[in-house]
Design a protein around this nucleic acid. Structure first.
Lengths: 126, 126
DNA sequence: CCACTGTTATATATAGTATATAACACTATA
DNA sequence: TATAGTGTTATATACTATATATAACAGTGG
C-alpha cells in the first residue's frame, strides 16, 4: 500500500494515514470490499506504532469508510455514492464561496474566477 | 474591539485571536497605524490569559501584520498592498483548483462551478 | 512618582499525540 | 488442536502544544 507519512509535519500521523486512505478510496485505488493492510503489518511497513494505526482505522470506521472484523481484517466499506456526492458538492460550494468572498473583499472581478476554472479545467485532464 | 472566541473550539485561542485581527485588517476595520487594545486590557476584556494574547500578538508581528513598541502599545503595520494582493490571488487560485479537481474526480461538469460563482456573486453583495 | 504600555521568565496544568508492551478474543488453516 | 495471523483492550510513559497564573523587568508619558 502506498503511504507517505511526514514525521515532522504538524498534521498528526494518524490524520495523515486517514487522509491517505480516504484519498485512495475516493480515487478508486481502493475498492469496495478490498482488504486493507493489517494494523500490525502496516505498523511494521511504515514504522509507526500499532496504536497510532489503530486510532486512524478506528476513526475511519466511525466515519463509515472502512469496517473492521476481529480475526479477519479491515475492509473498505461499501460507498454510499449519494452521500459522497453530497459531501463533495458541499466541499466544492465552500471553495467557490470562499473564492468569491475574497474577490469581493479585494475588488477582483469575478470574471477572473471563471477564467481560472477554464485554466485548471484544461490543465487538470491527463 | 470586536472579538469572538470559542473556548471549546479545536482551534487554539491564540490562533482565533490572530485570525480575527487579520480579518479586521483585511476588511479595513482596522487601519494602518491604528492602535490595538493593549495586551492586558484585551486579556481582561475577553477573559484570556495575558500570555495567550502575547503569543497571538508575537506571531502577528513576526508575520508583518502589526508592530509592538515597548511602553507605547501595539499598532497595525503599514500594509504592503502588492504583497497582500499576491497572497489573496494565490489563495483564490487554491480554492478554484481544489474545486476543479473535485469536479473532475467525481465527474461533475465544470459548468456547475461557473453557475456557483454567479450565485455567490449575487448573494454576497450587500 | 505613577499608571499605563510591552517583555521576559518561571512554574503549573491539561489535552493531544505517539510509543511500547502485554494480554485477550476471534478466524482460518495446517 | 496448535499456531499464526487478524482486531481489541488496557496500561504506562513521554513529549509537545496550549493555556493559565504570577512576578519581575523595562520603556513612555503625564
Amino acid at each position: 500500500m502506498r503511504m507517505m507519512i511526514s514525521n515532522s509535519s504538524s498534521v498528526p500521523i494518524y490524520e495523515q494515514i486517514k487522509e491517505n486512505i480516504i484519498h485512495q478510496i475516493m480515487n478508486h485505488e481502493l475498492l469496495e470490499g478490498e482488504i486493507l493492510p493489517s494494523i500490525r503489518s502496516l505498523s511494521k511497513d511504515i514504522k509507526i506504532s500499532v496504536m497510532t494505526i489503530k486510532k486512524a482505522y478506528d476513526e475511519l470506521e466511525s466515519e463509515g469508510y472502512i469496517t473492521s472484523i476481529q480475526g479477519k481484517g479491515t475492509f473498505v466499506a461499501p460507498q454510499n455514492t449519494q452521500l459522497v456526492q453530497e459531501q463533495v458538492r458541499r466541499e466544492i460550494e465552500n471553495h467557490i464561496e470562499k473564492a468569491v468572498t475574497l474577490s469581493h473583499r479585494f475588488q477582483i472581478p469575478v470574471e477572473e474566477l471563471t477564467q481560472l476554472i477554464e485554466i485548471f479545467d484544461r490543465g487538470d485532464e491527463e
